[in-house]
Nucleic acid binder design. Structure first.
Lengths: 209, 209
DNA sequence: GTCTATAACGTGATAGAC
DNA sequence: GTCTATCACGTTATAGAC
């Protein structure tokens, strides 16, 4: 009775409708606060169909979560593994690309961070992010630059915390920053836009102090 | 029937027991995923007592949230408004104090950021953080330093995003950093401990580039 | 004030008609 | 495949005895 190998247009379309509705609702509310009824409504379908296609809320969530992670991290590694760019160019390109990505999907960082905490391990194994990072062209170039004395001998751990903190945290704490500085959405985005250029400059100054 | 002005030892003690149990559970799981049964069990009391003292899960949550915010932000402003320290000293002291605070209560940043998003406004008004920041001694010193040309003309918005991002983000993304770098809890804490000294140095180099 | 028992409700999931 | 109606269960909240 499960629609496993079906390929009629209508079938695929409905399944995708549910999945993309689930992305929206889960990203916004997290697993616990999201209701299957919200997802069904967002998708414009009946609640029963959700269970027909995905069997349970949890199974649907796991699919959404895994896809979100893969999307999010694959966009990182495409820049990190480009063999034709220097370390400095990678940093600039990454900052710019990543901020664009966060403009498009600003809820993802908080979603990822929350659900990692509730999952720990089970998920991490599936995407094996550790190896992807350490075998990347970026890390090789980073270590080479240190060996050649071109940048300060700062552990990659600190570098990553700095880079991600500077890029991602403003999105995570967006409502707080907006309130403190009295910014509209447009003004906030303008401040973030400036950071595309600023963050690489700041990182460079940190690395060469 | 409500225990409004009661002051017998036993009464206060039970109310406090529930509230501090609620802090623990809410901080860990957020509002939606926390169950009143968890809180009652954590407090070592009967579930009915929770409703007797606080009327509802939501009312209890609002109290916990407000107190958490006040604790968290008041610890900021005590450093920011010390008139006897320089800008540089405030940055050093704040970094050190704040990291110690986060060691003690590492779930708070994620809790705050999540619940601000689900609340927006209603909560912000109550603590009026905007005025507290802009009237602080810290901001005055920051602007004075710019006017005197001692530091770069970088808007306070960016400075705050940088400072908070460098300090707080590692705690928010702790499981991710631990996994990527293959760190134990002890090793992770050691890395963070190093940042107490490093972050002020980095900020200074950013501000004088 | 504190407990047990239970009501009232919301939510995930399924049966069965079409 | 899609819908309506309903079940089954977990959770919040309350009534009432002590």
């Amino acid at each position: 009775m499960k629609p496993e190998k079906e390929s009629s247009e209508k079938n695929i379309s409905t399944e995708e409708k549910i999945k993309s509705a689930a992305r929206i609702v889960f990203h916004q509310k997290g697993f616990a606060a999201a209701r299957t009824r919200d997802i069904a409504e967002e998708a414009g379908i009946n609640l029963a169909l959700l269970n027909y296609y995905f069997r349970s809320k949890e199974k649907l969530f796991n699919i959404v979560m895994l896809e979100t992670f893969q999307d999010f991290f694959s966009s990182i590694f495409s820049v990190f593994n480009d063999v034709d760019t220097s370390l400095e160019e990678k940093i600039e390109k990454f900052a710019s690309n990543y901020i664009d990505l966060l403009f498009r999907e600003p809820e993802i960082p908080l979603f990822i961070v929350n659900e990692i905490r509730n999952n720990v391990g089970e998920l991490m194994d599936k995407i094996n992010i550790r190896n992807s990072v350490f075998n990347s062209e970026f890390v090789k170039q980073y270590n080479k630059a240190i060996k050649e004395g071109r940048i300060r001998n700062l552990s990659f751990q600190h570098f990553m915390m700095n880079f991600m903190g500077l890029l991602i945290f403003p999105f995570i704490a967006k409502p707080l920053f907006k309130e403190i500085n009295g910014l509209s959405d447009v003004q906030f985005n303008k401040v973030i836009e400036e950071r595309k250029q600023l963050i690489p400059v700041w990182l460079k100054s940190i690395m060469t102090v």
